[in-house]
């Protein structure tokens, strides 16, 4: 059984359905990417999995248990972390305070310290400026912090919502390399991206979302070679 399974999920804002019956699965240890243009419903899907919005219909299963009725903070305790779109750092709090908030649900002080070291090891600039407010950092550095903060709950599943948004190509590369490192450490990742090229070169599998429905799902390699994907998302003609 897959680690995360989403079944026939429908999510609405008021009367408007943003997600119209999608199903997807993430196997343990995999990187799965969710692609789609603006407004396709990618963030809504992640927000629903995290428990920030309840589904209208459908189910979310994690490690064999149904989680779509749980409040958000309990879903974090089950082992799902999300780095939200736009990073959403606590801008006037220090780097370290942001990271510690990421570990809010944990009781194991030793483990938290170890993970803090691990995040600082991954992103040196965060360690050297750990007492500075998060708002003072560049976009790329803020993204590092957002990913690091999500890692601080020591999640089994890490969900990243458009980590390359607004970043320079070089920064995007650096962030993607970091995600690759997490992948090789065995972290299971659900990656939402508009940068299909970067996401598919990392991922094992991919789903393509269009106006609330999944229109394609295949291995990342196949999607990279798929004509429709190449035309719509990779800028090929």
């Amino acid at each position: 059984m897959a680690m995360l399974e989403v079944k026939d999920l429908e999510v609405a804002y008021g009367r408007v359905k943003a997600v119209k019956g999608i199903s997807l699965a993430v196997e343990q240890g995999q990187v799965v990417t969710l692609l789609g243009i603006n407004g396709a419903g990618k963030s809504t899907t992640l927000r629903c999995i995290s428990g920030l919005i309840p589904p209208v219909v459908g189910e979310v299963w994690f490690e064999g248990e149904r989680i779509d009725k749980l409040p958000a903070h309990k879903i974090v305790r089950r082992g799902i972390a999300q780095s939200p779109e736009g990073r959403r750092l606590f801008k006037n709090m220090s780097v370290e305070d942001n990271l510690l908030l990421g570990a809010f649900s944990r009781q194991d002080a030793d483990g938290v310290k170890r993970d803090l070291d691990r995040v600082y090891g991954m992103f040196d600039v965060l360690r050297s400026r750990r007492h500075e407010p998060a708002g003072l950092f560049s976009g790329g550095e803020q993204q590092m912090l957002a990913i690091g903060r999500a890692m601080m709950s020591n999640p089994k599943l890490l969900m990243l919502d458009e980590p390359s948004m607004g970043l320079s190509p070089i920064m995007t590369q650096l962030i993607m390399r970091t995600i690759g490192e997490l992948q090789s450490e065995g972290v299971t990742i659900l990656l939402v991206e508009q940068n299909a090229q970067a996401a598919l070169s990392l991922a094992d599998r991919g789903y393509v979302l269009e106006v609330g429905r999944i229109v394609l799902c295949d291995s990342a390699a196949n999607l990279l070679g798929d004509d429709r994907v190449r035309q719509a998302y990779l800028g090929a003609d």
Binding site: S50, G51, A72, H73, V76, Q82, F90, S105
Partner: peptide, 14 residues
């Protein structure tokens, strides 16, 4: 500062 993000941190907002 940001209730939704606080919930993503595992904070019980209630």
């Amino acid at each position: 500062q940001d209730p939704d993000t606080a919930r993503l941190m595992g904070i019980d907002v209630d």
